[in-house]
Amino acid sequence: MIKKHVMVGALMALSSTAAGASDVSPEDMVIKLFDAMRAGNGGAIREMVVADARLDRLKPDGTLQQGTFERWISWVDTQEDGDADEQVFGVKTLSASPELATVWAPFELTYKGKFVGCGINQFTLAKSKDGWKFLYGIDMHHDGDCAEFKKEIMK
């Protein structure tokens, strides 16, 4: 579980938005995140994420597998360019203010040329003087037909 003081500290550090901050949108950040994953560039991802950010997975049985962006970043660093290809589609910001956004990003995942599956990501981002940063992420894989899943999302 995220310690309250860690989250409060992260939000306080990110809460002051200075003039001239990047005009990159939260949706753009999600695209950049997966571009860096495709490139096997964990360092680029690390720059987009606040320290100690959580990255969890909701499993099909309803249990929560807790993780961190850092653990995922370490895995990304072991990948060759193009190995892990997570393509997002129908990306939507469902809740936004000038400094806080929640982004839903459905995905299809291919690993080393083989289709792995699909699902949905949800990210919480905050904007600082340096631009948007990821505070939290969670994903859930879809257990059914991915073509139907994508068709429903794209309606």
Rank of each mutant, 00 (worst) to 15 (best):
M1E: 15
I2R: 15
K3Y: 10
K3Q: 15
K4V: 12
H5P: 01
H5L: 14
V6I: 15
V6T: 09
A10Y: 03
L11M: 15
L11K: 11
L14R: 09
S16K: 05
S16T: 08
S16D: 06
A19N: 07
A19K: 11
A21P: 10
D23S: 13
D28R: 14
D28A: 10
M29L: 06
V30L: 03
V30Y: 03
K32H: 15
K32E: 14
L33D: 12
D35E: 14
A36H: 12
A36N: 11
M37D: 10
M37V: 08
M37P: 00
R38K: 15
R38T: 14
G40P: 09
G42E: 00
G43F: 04
I45C: 06
E47V: 08
V49S: 04
D52A: 14
D56L: 01
R57H: 12
K59H: 14
P60H: 12
G62C: 03
L64F: 00
Q65N: 14
Q65Y: 07
Q65H: 11
Q65R: 11
T68N: 04
T68D: 04
T68R: 15
R71P: 00
I73P: 01
I73R: 02
W75K: 08
V76A: 02
V76N: 00
Q79C: 09
Q79W: 02
Q79V: 02
E80P: 10
D83Y: 07
D83G: 05
A84Q: 13
D85G: 01
E86M: 09
E86A: 09
E86I: 03
F89V: 07
K92P: 01
K92N: 15
T93A: 06
T93F: 10
S95R: 11
A96R: 11
A96W: 06
E99L: 08
A101R: 04
A101F: 06
T102E: 07
V103G: 05
P106S: 09
E108Y: 03
L109Y: 12
T110A: 11
K112W: 02
G113A: 09
F115D: 04
F115E: 14
V116N: 10
V116D: 12
G117S: 08
C118Q: 05
G119D: 06
G119K: 11
G119M: 06
I120F: 01
I120V: 13
N121M: 06
Q122W: 01
T124A: 10
T124Y: 05
L125Y: 13
L125H: 07
L125R: 07
K127Q: 12
G131I: 03
G131N: 02
W132A: 01
L135E: 06
L135P: 11
G137M: 11
G137E: 02
D139C: 04
M140E: 14
H141T: 13
D143I: 11
D143H: 08
D145A: 02
C146T: 04
C146W: 05
C146G: 04
F149Y: 10
F149L: 01
K150W: 00
K151A: 07
I153L: 04
M154D: 07
M154N: 08
K155C: 00
K155E: 00
